[in-house]
Design a protein around this nucleic acid. Structure first.
Lengths: 219, 219
DNA sequence: ATGTTCTTGTGATCTCTTTCACAAGCGAGA
DNA sequence: TCTCGCTTGTGAAAGAGATCACAAGAACAT
């Protein structure tokens, strides 16, 4: 096991877990690969293949024990330990995430928040005090921050990521619309609304073109 | 042309476009596939292959005309027309997007915002008045809304998506952490912070395991 | 015991994406 | 006009991921 697992597989595992948690809450005992597949928008074979990379969790003829598989997946994804996150930049996105209690609800510890703007330093957002950037390195190492959330403007994003990594972050979640460079060995994911919106525009436009062609063919 | 283009290709096209706009602004005339690749985190061959699906835009030996390619990509992605978006649910995320002027800055028209909470109806968020859900269908058709942004709690997401599509939306951007079903022909993208965060946890954890194994091998 | 029914786990296969490698083409300079 | 240096566009090869299809097992009824 522990060969290279693709991002798409990992994303699906998260979805399975989400579903399992819901089922567990309403005390359903068993679920089949098909049941899981339908709830998460994939196929039964895909579910089984994904799980098979990590071991064998089901009973033939029966399916998977909901609670059991849930625990296994939490283990696999690394969610049995606590994770400390820091939010860099408390503009609209940063403060939305903090104010919402987003991280806390999902079992992440918000260890700190930072902003370059002196007017924002000292504010309390969702129970976290905004600190000046000068305290970044010290705070990261004091509180064992391993995940950095980049929510700064584009211009500052790369520098913040670099500082975060140098200060000990092992993973970066980037909300700024730039491609960030991080040393290999540091995990990196991005959330880019513009990319997704433009993707939708393309899809709608291209679907239109296809419709045009079909119409042409009919003539 | 206009065969099925993969999502990953479309995402890269958006990245190229973003870069081209920056270059155009600072009046750089020409860029090579390598230049574009380095700025967007891919390879020169990939850039050329991506573009080749839509035609032939460069000059051999020279590279691509920045302004020209920019316009071509805007055309391909469907960004030369105006798009009307509606925001469904003005909780933390919805109002962050509106308040930020996010859509307007990027050339999208915010046609409307809706919320189920009567206390929120009537509020002005970034110049948009929040409307009650009862006005959804009428407003969608009056203003030609083609993109629906789902920013409601999980429970309401599927119903809102269904209503939006029935009211004329051709694309859905979903911020709620559920898999939504939409009829084929409707474009759909999702932004799920939890999925990305858990993905990071996995990557850090798995990287740790790999390190462990290496250490074991050395012993 | 035996048969029936169901669902898993997994090799084999298929499909899609990325990478490679190179001929074709452009511009500049002699 | 010819040559040289550079970069595109693209078939062919390699790599990755998703799908298929079925043997292996588990429960339960007879």
């Amino acid at each position: 096991m522990a060969r290279k697992i693709s991002d798409s597989t990992v994303r699906r595992l998260s979805r399975y877990l989400r579903r399992l948690r819901a089922l567990d809450r309403r005390e359903q005992k068993v679920v089949s690969s098909r049941g899981l597949a339908e709830a998460t928008g994939t196929t039964a074979a895909q579910v089984r293949k994904d799980l098979s990379h990590f071991g064998s969790f089901g009973k033939r003829g029966q399916g998977y024990d909901v609670h059991d598989l849930r625990v296994q997946l939490e283990e696999i994804l690394g969610l049995t330990r606590r994770w400390s996150v820091a939010v860099l930049g408390v503009g609209k996105i940063g403060s939305a995430l903090l104010g919402y209690g987003f991280f806390t609800e999902r079992g992440f510890d918000v260890a700190a928040a930072f902003d370059a703007d002196p007017a924002k330093v000292g504010l309390d957002l969702g129970g976290v005090r905004v600190q000046p950037l000068s305290e970044l390195e010290q705070t990261f190492s004091d509180r064992g921050v391993s995940i950095a959330i980049i929510a700064t403007p584009v211009e500052a994003a790369q520098e913040m990521a670099t500082r975060a990594v140098r200060a000990g972050a092992r993973a970066v979640l980037n909300f700024a619309p730039v491609k960030l460079n991080v040393p290999s060995g540091v995990a990196m994911r991005e959330m880019d609304v513009t990319l997704e919106l433009e993707g939708l525009c393309y899809m709608v436009t291209a679907a239109g073109h296809v419709a045009d062609r079909l119409a042409d063919d009919i003539e």
